[in-house]
Design a protein around this nucleic acid. Sequence first.
DNA 1: CTGAAAGCGCTTACAG
DNA 2: CTGAAAGCGCTTACAG
Lengths: 329, 329
Amino acid sequence: MPVRVTADDVAKAAGVSRAMVSRAFTPGASVAVRKREHVLRVAQALGYRPNLIARGLTGQRTGLVAVVAGEISRPYEAWLLEHIVRVLSANGYQPLLLPAFRDANMTEMIDHALAYQVEGAIVAAGSVSRDIADRCQASGAPLVLIGRVLEKNGADAVCCDNIKGMWQLVERLVKQGRRRIAWLGGTADTFSDQERRQGVEEALAHYGLSLQVQRRGDFSLSSGVSEGLALLDSRLALDAIMCANDAMALGVVEAAAQRGIKVPDDVAITGFDDVPGAAWGRCPLTTVRNPVNETALEALRLLETRVHNPTCDNQVIRVGVTLVPRSSA
Amino acid sequence: MPVRVTADDVAKAAGVSRAMVSRAFTPGASVAVRKREHVLRVAQALGYRPNLIARGLTGQRTGLVAVVAGEISRPYEAWLLEHIVRVLSANGYQPLLLPAFRDANMTEMIDHALAYQVEGAIVAAGSVSRDIADRCQASGAPLVLIGRVLEKNGADAVCCDNIKGMWQLVERLVKQGRRRIAWLGGTADTFSDQERRQGVEEALAHYGLSLQVQRRGDFSLSSGVSEGLALLDSRLALDAIMCANDAMALGVVEAAAQRGIKVPDDVAITGFDDVPGAAWGRCPLTTVRNPVNETALEALRLLETRVHNPTCDNQVIRVGVTLVPRSSA
DNA sequence: CTGAAAGCGCTTACAG
DNA sequence: CTGAAAGCGCTTACAG
């Protein structure tokens, strides 16, 4: 039978009150230095650690932050998650990981996390409704979105500059003389898909061009292969294929190889995100860097800002992107 | 100011005692069916959900399970993590994610998780000492290791059959007539590196062969490239390079391409794990499938088994692997 | 600086 | 089946 040593045990052993033990473990509390040292020493000897669940009940901080992540096995989600978790841990928070699978009920998930008295929620997957934002607000837990924004001042968000990223890519392609450009979009109704396509169309229009054709994958590499094949076989004489993310671009590179089509000579291929794998493989990807570390830092900053000032207006932080020119375009 | 509605509020509104509302939310409790429905309805209307932190304090289940994961942005760790998290969530547990970076202090991390009264810990990264197992035991939280085992009955573990996997790969190479085989190991002192190398050496010895050369990377793709280049440039006339995991094998494939060396004609390359990306790219990898889903399921099973019987002997579950023959060997 | 007391929100014997 | 009471382990006013 495991014996849990409590503050009372330490108090008894150290010859002080239970409150004293609590104070010894509370950084700012007013305790005599020598006494604190003594209590801490006794606690150490007994193997005592404050029960964070009990502390959380007191209305104090629980230190818990809910993190809603998508399919973790995908490069971008994994990469982003790593940074979020790292930043949270480094700042004394414990990430409660909520996996958002396609059939996941976001409302149910958030409610569950809220029941754990999380101090906030960072949502980097799925679609967030007004309803969810309201629930979080009602519980006093700040909600921060990553890579998606809610209309009408619903929640704080941090999102990269999708539009500008696509402009930079289009600019490069146009300068290379590319004119017959195709678009391979990602999952429908996702914020990234919409903004990125919008960026492409705007930029093309600026040059008096428009897309030759559009197809849609699901952000996965394999969908990039199949849609890439379809595009390449379409006999549209495309000279560039722009993809909504790196994974699909990598798939299109694969498709081109299967058809014996040279990249970038015959067709240029562009991605988005600059995930760790983008520089490797058959053809290093020309893409746009999505600054995930900065994103994670900003997300935490927004979270903490709102804790201190729950009623200020919602902010949408746009983090900058940078063109990463490599071989594929 | 967010208002937290408590069981008392519901009790008052429903005209019952607080104990009654607690029972209404406790599946097996004896309550009049009609009354439970009524309480639940009132609770719903008020937006009440039991505070899980308070419930956890009662000595009840917290539902929390610590999950120690490695560098999440690496394919294998991400893939495994996804399955662990999925299995945990599907069974009513909340994963508390602890990131194990190279400089992470595992003992400190586990202690912290224990302070949250986790019901168990699944460790899939870093090296685990006896000390950590003892701490978990003292707290009554079962510890389950994945992909590593502790000597002398220290903790439950689930691990794939590294030895057999490597035998299968060696067998295939030998049948192809390969004789000049190199080994590219992973991070020193890791369980996977040791067992996999051992498997290779045993199997080669069985055929009267031995390794031509050994080098060591760090399980990353980029280390596969650099070590692969070194191996390929060594003029040892190698006809096969066996790698301790897929990421490094993918790097070696890349190195071969850079040198204009044909795979598998000039040199065969093998991996381990069969991560999602192994089938893609320049040269689909011949590898061994590490059954992560089964691994995650077994890990949870071990966890729950020990909760019910804390004192039974430790078990090490070996999950089976299967050869996945593709183009690279 | 320190201790006794009250309370965080829940669950679980204990009676009935 | 149901309620009043005690208690989970901690922190925080409240006195001193």
